[in-house]
């Protein structure tokens, strides 16, 4: 906590490369801004976050050119970056800080030894965060039908590594007797909902597949935190773009590979007219985080969240009111409690 009237709230994200971490963070920040428009809360990105978001938007615009979606225009993240957004009333602020990093770093083989030290810092960040976001590539899960495709999907989503890291996180929470929020956020799911411009509704199927694939992760967290109160695991499907539609998905064996080798997955998307990004579902994550903070008031007075609540209560009434108002925003039909 800082004496300047600001408090930093760390949010961690955990996901392999190309899953959609950076896009999810960007959607979360811009939807949060929308959510708070017209309230006494001022919301502003801190430092170079705004420039970074602008770059992402430009890349996105570039990938939506001419009615086609070229996902490739968004290259992967090369170095960790902390996105920061301050939510303030009267000079007191909660500063949301979300650490983004290259997903390839989850796997030591693709991390590169020069990044080991920095990865340690990322891991520390994750362990200190009361909120763990797990983006899930919905298309990988939904377009897998054959057995080999399903195995590849597990592989692409790095369920094993995710489980291991989530377990570490939960262990840390349990030891410190701190509550925790796990948000499983399927992205790339525009084609499975009919509430944001799509025509087909496959949301039940998506839910079933996500819960099935992430069962080891969910179980690990529950197990580690079984003696701790205040664990919430939630399901928040997000359209980070909201204006594209899956056209076709292809699973292909790499040239000259064996029967067992993982397949290569690629999906093509078309742009839904008028081609304006229309993210949906990410704002609910902020609402859930605020609920977590509000619920901490009934806790036993330990840990970051209850300290935060105490801080909000001592003279920061208007900011506290803002958090309470946010926590009361309805979560919508997509969200489920696991």
């Amino acid at each position: 906590m800082s004496d300047e009237g600001n408090i930093e709230f760390k949010v961690a994200i955990l996901g392999p490369r190309r899953v959609g971490k950076t896009s999810l963070i960007t959607a979360l920040l811009s939807e949060s801004q929308k959510l708070l428009a017209g309230t006494p809360v001022s919301i502003a990105s801190v430092g170079t976050t705004e420039a970074r978001i602008a770059q992402h938007k430009n890349d996105l615009r570039g990938s939506l050119l001419a009615g086609e979606f070229h996902p490739g225009a968004l290259g992967g993240t090369q170095a960790p970056f902390t996105f920061t957004l301050s939510m303030s009333v009267n000079k007191t602020a909660i500063v949301w800080a979300i650490l983004d990093y290259p997903g390839g770093w989850l796997d030591a083989r693709t991390r590169g030894s020069e990044n080991d030290a920095e990865w340690e810092r990322c891991k520390r960040w994750i362990s200190e965060s009361p909120v763990l976001l797990l983006p899930v590539d919905a298309s990988v899960l939904m377009e897998a039908t054959l057995k080999r495709e399903k195995i590849t999907a597990q592989h692409l989503l790095q369920i094993g590594q995710t489980e291991e890291m989530a377990r570490e996180w939960a262990k840390g929470r349990a030891v410190a007797k701190q509550p925790g929020l796990v948000v499983i956020a399927p992205v790339k799911c525009e084609s499975y909902f009919n509430d944001n411009g799509g025509l087909v509704d496959k949301n039940e199927e998506l839910y079933r597949r996500v819960v099935q694939a992430y069962k080891p992760v969910i179980d690990a967290v529950r197990q580690e935190m079984s003696g701790t109160t205040g664990l919430s695991i939630q399901y928040h499907p997000v359209d980070t773009f909201g204006c594209v539609e899956l056209q076709s998905a292809e699973w292909r064996a790499p040239d000259g590979s064996s029967e067992q080798a993982p397949l290569l997955f690629s999906a093509t998307y078309i742009v839904r007219p008028p081609g304006q990004p229309n993210p949906k579902g990410a704002g609910g994550i902020l609402v859930s985080i605020c609920r977590q903070i509000v619920e901490a008031q009934s806790g036993k007075g330990r840990g970051f969240l209850s300290e935060l609540w105490a801080w909000l209560t001592g003279g920061k009434r208007r900011l506290r009111q803002a958090v309470e108002d946010l926590s009361a925003v309805p979560l919508g039909n997509r969200v489920r409690m696991l």
Binding site: R17, Q78, A79, P80, T110, S113, E114, E118
Partner: peptide, 29 residues
């Protein structure tokens, strides 16, 4: 082709001395 994981071809620098500027620049650009 097969992956978009960026790797140093062969040896890598011992220290990521550029890292301290990560808040000021997107290394992807």
């Amino acid at each position: 082709l097969s992956s978009d994981d960026y790797r140093f071809l062969g040896r890598a620098p011992k220290e990521a001395f550029w890292r301290r500027y990560a808040d000021y620049t997107s290394f992807e650009r």
